[in-house]
Design a protein around this nucleic acid. Structure first.
Lengths: 149, 149
DNA sequence: ATGTCTGCAAAGCTTTTGCACTGAT
DNA sequence: ATCAGTGCAAAAGCTTTGCAGACAT
């Protein structure tokens, strides 16, 4: 699917969510959604704020946090905490559930999928009577590039 | 091993670490180590600060953070970030590497071990040329108790 | 016209830093 | 006696909140 088509679809999902939850369809909210879906990889709120300011888009941190909360609720983005206080986010439409390898030297984040995690999850559900909504599997270490330094 | 014996051993490990790194053996540092090893489960810095204050022990947050850093380095405690800004810690002497199930309703943390995580780890080391130091696998959901509310 | 959403600034919360004093060496 | 380590308070960094004004409905 092209980036343009993806953008059209996520906009529709967001609109439906806003209508369903009696939330207003403000230009700021759509601008933030667009900003997220035009870029790739992981991002944090502060750098997104700076990016939008640099494009002379008038936006506040409060609105960013508020809108991100909405996007989390309608599952258009995911939130991560890679061992630091500052939260990281990524778009989640059309992206498979995946996990992360984090280089603690250069902060690079690599995504990977491994179906075996599902087996572990199922074992826990069976043995512990625990409803599992989501999981986070992070491997921390040193990437190829940083090993040679 | 009894709690008393454990305490003796971890004190020795800490002392060796301090000597090796030219760090002073201050009463505050040992008091913090004792406080941690006398209690069970996970803790955060602020509640530990309050606990020690309540015992009329004169300690500062700065010293707590400083000492925790030392304890992390000599691997007597582990640090976790369960999806919140506030970091959680746990003692790690004589405790197997394990992972966590977190109830997002009551914040309860359950530990579990699953050997299959090792297989995933080995696959990644082989296929990606990435040095892995540690991992964190967290399942988030609703515990038995909170499901009935 | 109404009341929600926004930007801005101030406050909150966790963690770090600066500084003068204390106490381990 | 020296200077690393301490308590305290202030600052820093991320996130949330309060408020007056703007704008989607």
């Amino acid at each position: 699917m092209s980036k343009k088509d993806t953008h059209k679809e996520v906009t529709e999902i967001f609109t439906n969510y806003l209508i369903k939850n009696n939330q207003r369809k403000t230009p700021e909210r759509y601008a933030i959604l667009t900003e997220i879906y035009e870029n790739d990889g992981h991002f944090d709120v502060e750098s997104m704020y700076i990016n939008m300011k640099n494009k002379n888009y008038r936006v506040s941190r409060a609105t960013l946090y508020n809108t991100i909360e909405l996007l989390l609720e309608c599952k258009l983005i995911r939130k991560h905490q890679f061992g630091k206080a500052q939260a990281q986010f990524e778009k989640s439409f059309l992206s498979r559930q995946h996990d992360h390898i984090i280089c603690t030297t250069c902060d690079k984040v690599i995504e990977f999928c491994d179906p075996r995690i599902l087996n572990i999850k199922n074992s826990i559900i069976e043995s512990m009577n625990f409803q599992i909504e989501r999981h986070a599997l992070n491997f921390y270490g040193t990437c190829n590039n940083c090993q040679n330094k």
